[in-house]
Design a binder for these strands. Structure first.
Lengths: 132, 132
DNA sequence: CTAGTCTATCGTAATTCGACGATAGACTAT
DNA sequence: ATAGTCTATCGTCGAATTACGATAGACTAG
């Protein structure tokens, strides 16, 4: 039910941090969009219709993927008629990168090899409730 | 398939790199799953049914989210009857983290402020083609 | 003005996702 | 053996995603 776009201008007002990070990851969760980000990263300059050739999908489909990336704030589109110039917005990727960095840091310090496993705490799940 | 420690040889061998990274991002693309990763990171030790309490969804739904995270290789589940101990597998997050790191490094060196925009290259899109 | 180039949007069909309750499985404890 | 605890799976439903062609919009070039 959450419609998390419809406004690509606001800096995505702080929802719950989980939803914020998840939105970034979700926008990156498709091979074609990863491909597009890779292209923008590689070519450093924005490109227009060349993206369509590269990813090998229909123009309307690529446009849709670009819309999703723009809606997530990962990519910005500057109009430079008759083309549109796309570029990356690294700032937007920072929350996700920070989380991943924390995990990898934790690994580097060996803090994640959990040996203290599952203290004997009881769960409050009623699987047998409401049984007449 | 009663054995939950099934070998993951086929699921993630080495697809195209784009698909590999996209699969990681897709698995992280949901608030509940980000929440779970955060819990595992915070508590350092694996937890069982406590996750259900934390995320506030039905047990079957949480199990499904855990299944997705396990299928993506981000989380591992060790059986410690009667519980299952989950822990993070940071190794799996590395490809995505590396890509994000490259973007942020590019920004740090100011390589991403594309000013050379859209060289006058023609696009090979036939919007009027195939008119029988 | 007219034609051409590039992008966004609409409509649609097939597929997948997210959430839930119900149920089955696998042990522990009594 | 019996009951109890925790997790996985099945079946289902509405909602969301993905892909495409067709079409509309916005300029530029001639």
């Amino acid at each position: 039910m959450p419609n998390l776009e419809s406004n690509n201008q606001t800096p995505l007002p702080e929802r719950a941090p989980d939803e914020n990070i998840a939105a970034i990851a979700k926008a990156l969760g498709h091979p074609a969009r990863i491909h597009i980000v890779g292209l923008l990263l590689e070519k450093k300059t924005c490109i227009g219709c060349d993206i369509v050739d590269e990813v090998g999908l229909a123009q309307s489909t690529v446009s849709e993927h670009l819309r999703i990336l723009k809606a997530a704030g990962i990519v910005t589109g500057e109009i430079e008629r008759p083309r549109v110039c796309y570029s990356l917005n690294p700032e937007r990727l920072r929350p996700l990168a920070a989380m991943l960095g924390t995990v990898l840091d934790g690994e580097r310090r060996g803090e994640l090899t959990g040996s203290i496993c599952c203290p004997p705490d009881e769960c409050g799940i009623d699987t047998t409730a409401a049984k007449p």
